[in-house]
Nucleic acid binder design. Structure first.
Length: 425
RNA sequence: GGAGAGGUGCCGGAGUGGUUGAACGGGCACGCCUGGAGAGCGUGUGUUCUCUUAACGGGGAACCGAGGGUUCGAAUCCCUCCCUCUCCGCCA
């Protein structure tokens, strides 16, 4: 959520930011509602002031044993008027909040202006794109051949987009998660969190998935709970409605969760294998930091996430998203993309974003610089560190051998307990 | 799911209709005292909205789990919901 005062004072900046993001949002309607709201607040508060005074008089008159009937009658009239105007005020505030909820965060001034993914800028690349002197297979063929992935049976038991990992595949998945968690917590200083996978409305609103992205999420109607699309939601919301002491900042959390996405609106696109699934695993990094350092923190977050790919020896590149490709709540975002030899293209494995105070404001997350200073909104950041589905694609494809097996990267061997994935039966 | 208890400020804990934003205690901050520290004493200590001011500041409104209601007036009475704790039942 944007600061209403900021919108009031910088309407043209806000309009420009929304436009560059390709989002909707009626700034003029907001300004109009805000104006009306403040007018009615003034009227209502004057009336309440008068009522408070008169009630006081009633109290005094009664104590003195005098009749208070005329004062009571006047107060009764005022109270009715207050009731009517409070109702009007409430409606105005609901409308105003509805509009505000739909306003996206504004892009940071450093973000390149662009319409869509074609406007993104490649920042750097790491690793050598492998060349093979044999006919390579894609991750689906490898998974089937080695009997480590089973998409057809996933479809049978759940539906399309719910992968099943088997044998060495399951162990490999578990190894990846452990490697990532250990690296982020032991080496990069993120505190490990194992959060719930179902969250309530307030949490979904806090990180900005609601109201706009409701269609993208699995929803348990009976309990009014949502399956998390990312660990960002439960972890960032850990401190919702809190005022953090200064010593707590910066906060760094990492956590593994399964992630659930309906992927509504992307039917027919990338339906094969791991490229687009409804359930996947991810280790997420979350930071809650001082506003003045959040952009440095974004750079280190990006480094911490990409470190995983370096450990695994998987070629990747970093892309800075342009304004038009930024998500609803992000002010700046880097994608990390891994190389798929079979697809011959880059696949998004991580997004590292700075939300500035957009989420903090929504979830009323604040901090205090000293015991006597006013609460301020910290900045929140998060990044996948990283998602295993696309990582699995890159790993299987990059490490395949001419014998049809897959080498396990060195760092993973102590987690998997084997060096090579080959057909077991 | 059944029965009971409870949700008040940073914390503990009063308060059952009228200057109660809230006694009292603790904590914390500032000041005095001290060679220094402690003890002691004194002062202060919420948030949000709004008006006003160049600013410091000042005026006002709201907030005692949430939302409604009764009343001239609600932390206090009534209703609904949420949460926590204890016991019982069920269950991985």
């Amino acid at each position: 959520m944007l600061d209403l005062k900021f919108i009031r004072e910088n309407p043209s900046l806000v309009k420009e930011g929304i436009k560059n993001k390709g989002e909707m949002g009626d700034v003029d309607a907001i300004l109009d509602l805000d104006e009306k709201r403040r007018q009615i607040i003034q009227k209502v508060e004057a009336l309440k002031h008068e009522r408070n005074d008169l009630s006081q008089q009633v109290s005094i008159l009664k104590k003195e044993g005098k009749s208070a009937d005329t004062v009571i009658q006047r107060t009764r009239d005022i109270s009715q008027s207050i009731k009517d105007q409070d109702e009007e005020l409430k409606n105005l505030e609901i409308s105003l909040k509805n509009e505000l909820d739909r306003l996206p965060n504004l892009p940071h001034s450093s973000v390149p202006v662009g319409k869509d993914a074609t406007g993104n800028v490649v920042i750097r690349a790491w690793g050598k794109i492998p060349e093979f002197d044999f006919e390579i297979s894609n991750h689906l063929e490898i998974g089937e051949r080695l009997d480590i992935l089973d998409f057809p049976r996933g479809s049978k038991i759940s539906g399309r987009g719910f992968p099943v990992y088997k044998g060495q595949g399951a162990k490999l998945e578990r190894a990846l998660i452990n490697l990532m968690l250990d690296t982020q917590s032991n080496e990069h200083g993120y505190k490990e969190i194992f959060p719930p996978f179902l969250v309530n409305r307030d949490s979904m609103y806090g990180t900005g998935q609601l109201p706009k992205l409701q269609e993208d999420m699995y929803f348990c109607e009976l309990d009014d709970l949502f399956l998390i699309p990312t660990a960002e939601v439960p972890i960032t919301n850990l401190h919702r409605d809190e005022i953090l002491a200064i010593e707590k900042l910066p906060l760094k959390y990492c956590g593994y969760t399964a992630c659930f996405r309906r992927e509504a609106g992307s039917w027919g696109k990338e339906t094969r294998g791991f490229l687009r699934v409804h359930q996947f695993n991810k280790v997420e990094l979350v930071k809650i930091v001082f506003p003045e350092t959040s952009y440095q923190e974004l750079e280190t977050l990006l480094k911490d996430a990409s470190r995983i790919l370096e450990l695994l020896g998987i070629p990747y590149r970093v892309v800075e998203l342009c304004t038009g490709d930024l998500s609803f709540g992000a002010a700046k975002c880097y994608d990390i993309e891994v190389w798929s030899p079979a697809e011959k293209r880059w696949l998004e494995a991580s997004s590292c974003s700075n939300f500035e105070d957009f989420q903090a404001r929504r979830m009323n997350l604040r901090f205090r610089r000293s015991t006597t200073s006013k609460p301020e909104f910290p900045h929140t950041l998060n990044g996948s560190g990283v998602a295993t589905s696309r990582l699995m694609v890159a790993l299987l494809e990059n490490y395949q051998t001419d014998e049809g097996s897959v080498m396990v990267p060195d760092v993973l061997r102590r987690y998997t307990g084997f060096n090579l994935i080959k057909r077991e039966d």
